[in-house]
Amino acid sequence: MSYIQPYNFRISLIFILALNQNVLANDPYISEIVAANDNSLRDNFDESSDWIEIFNPAEKSLNLEGWGLSDNPDTPLKWIFPHIEIEPKGFLLVHASGNNISEKGKPLHASFRLSRSGEFLGLSNPDGEFIDKFDPNFPSGNEDNAYGVPMMGELEEIIPAHSKFHYITPASTHASLDWENPNYNVPATWIYAQGGFGFVKSGSSFYKDLIKRKIPTSKRCLWIRKNFEINNLDAIKALILRIYYDDGFIASINGVTVASSNAPEKPRYNSYSKGINKLLGYENFDISEHIGLLKAGQNNVLSVKAFNAPNDRNDFFVMPILLCGKSSNIEPKKRTFLSFATPGKANSNAKLPRPSSPT
């Protein structure tokens, strides 16, 4: 099953200093939860346990030692944090797995799980006073539905679905090309066509109706690239790669890798993916940490190497979408379902991205 990169322990502190804060107090609060996790995050046991995200809105670090999380309003200190600090404007993840791990230097696991049908959830200080709580309960949701505090503005599509890309099915003669460089002069041998790209050999496939450009069924690897324009670089505070893929990919912006899944360790022109993507639909990759790669104007390139799996050769597909968003005022008490989950990072907004026409 495909999923966002497995959780490699570290306190997941992603700073959002660029966000305009409208926080009423400096107390930490529960910023996001997923109570029916499937693909949004894997814990250190490679399990898809539910998760809780805590945000520190203060201008100084906060030590949560002695604080508690609970799914019972009568037992505020049901699970207690160890000695652990959240940096200013930082996030901390707790896996709601029931494994009850509260040790300094280890991934945190609450002693309880979350109910997908909704239940009480609270964060209390060491005195047992609830500082933040979902009371009487957070709402029920489907798989991977994130619920929490919106932190991004409305998302816009820089590269919409079914946009045109230059593409090539690479051969050994292409192995040394610097084709991901923004200054690469694309030759006429590359085909310019509307995405998505792929094939279905026989039977039904989720991707069948999404394919706009068929490629030969003998191919296992595809390279695509697209120039795109940034008009107001300073306003961009969030960058999201939304991609449909079967079965692996490596995505780059202006020649620098920004996201990957099931990618071979040493990709070549004829590489296979190292796994099968069983996720039907798109996957979101928060690549906001790479906003600095963008350039004002037209000289930007999104490039994707797509790989098929050796044991899943009936279909092959790739279609990337690039989204951006501005920062937004944060109102901790105005929780809602979010566009997509962002564990340990600034939360997405409460709306789907504004649709655009293919470019």
Rank of each mutant, 00 (worst) to 15 (best):
341 A>S: 14
223 W>D: 11
276 I>P: 08
216 P>Y: 09
64 L>N: 02
180 E>C: 11
71 D>L: 07
201 K>P: 04
106 K>E: 13
67 W>R: 02
254 N>D: 08
258 V>S: 05
94 V>I: 12
312 D>P: 00
157 E>W: 11
17 L>A: 06
17 L>D: 13
252 S>Y: 04
19 L>P: 00
254 N>R: 01
83 H>C: 00
274 K>S: 13
127 D>Y: 10
348 S>A: 15
40 S>T: 09
250 I>N: 05
189 T>L: 11
67 W>F: 15
186 V>F: 10
169 T>H: 07
359 T>V: 12
221 C>S: 15
111 S>N: 15
334 K>V: 05
157 E>P: 10
187 P>G: 13
148 G>T: 02
338 L>V: 03
155 L>M: 14
8 N>L: 05
263 A>T: 00
295 K>I: 13
316 F>W: 02
147 Y>G: 13
141 G>M: 06
87 E>S: 12
268 R>P: 00
59 E>R: 02
33 I>W: 03
57 P>G: 14
340 F>H: 10
181 N>K: 06
336 T>R: 04
94 V>M: 03
333 K>A: 10
350 A>I: 11
229 E>W: 01
359 T>L: 14
357 S>Y: 04
250 I>R: 06
2 S>E: 12
55 F>N: 05
60 K>I: 09
296 A>K: 10
252 S>V: 00
233 L>M: 06
334 K>Q: 11
104 K>H: 12
319 M>Y: 00
193 A>M: 10
14 I>K: 06
305 K>T: 04
282 Y>M: 11
139 P>D: 08
16 I>F: 04
86 I>S: 05
208 K>H: 14
95 H>P: 01
347 N>T: 03
235 A>D: 07
77 L>W: 02
10 R>H: 09
219 K>V: 14
214 K>W: 15
131 I>L: 14
133 K>D: 13
33 I>V: 02
38 D>R: 11
309 A>T: 00
358 P>L: 12
11 I>P: 02
173 T>K: 10
258 V>E: 04
85 E>A: 09
345 K>N: 09
260 S>I: 06
163 S>G: 13
59 E>H: 07
107 P>F: 09
315 D>F: 03
163 S>T: 09
191 I>R: 03
145 N>M: 10
132 D>E: 10
336 T>F: 01
166 H>Y: 15
55 F>L: 15
129 E>S: 11
101 I>A: 10
342 T>I: 05
196 G>T: 04
314 N>F: 05
39 N>D: 13
35 A>V: 03
218 S>K: 06
71 D>H: 07
256 V>Q: 04
8 N>Y: 03
221 C>E: 14
229 E>H: 08
54 I>L: 14
351 K>Y: 14
93 L>C: 02
230 I>T: 01
354 R>A: 12
76 P>Q: 06
308 N>A: 11
307 F>W: 06
238 A>E: 00
74 D>W: 05
98 G>R: 02
26 N>Y: 06
91 F>Y: 08
39 N>E: 12
35 A>S: 13
181 N>I: 03
7 Y>F: 12
268 R>A: 12
82 P>T: 07
343 P>W: 08
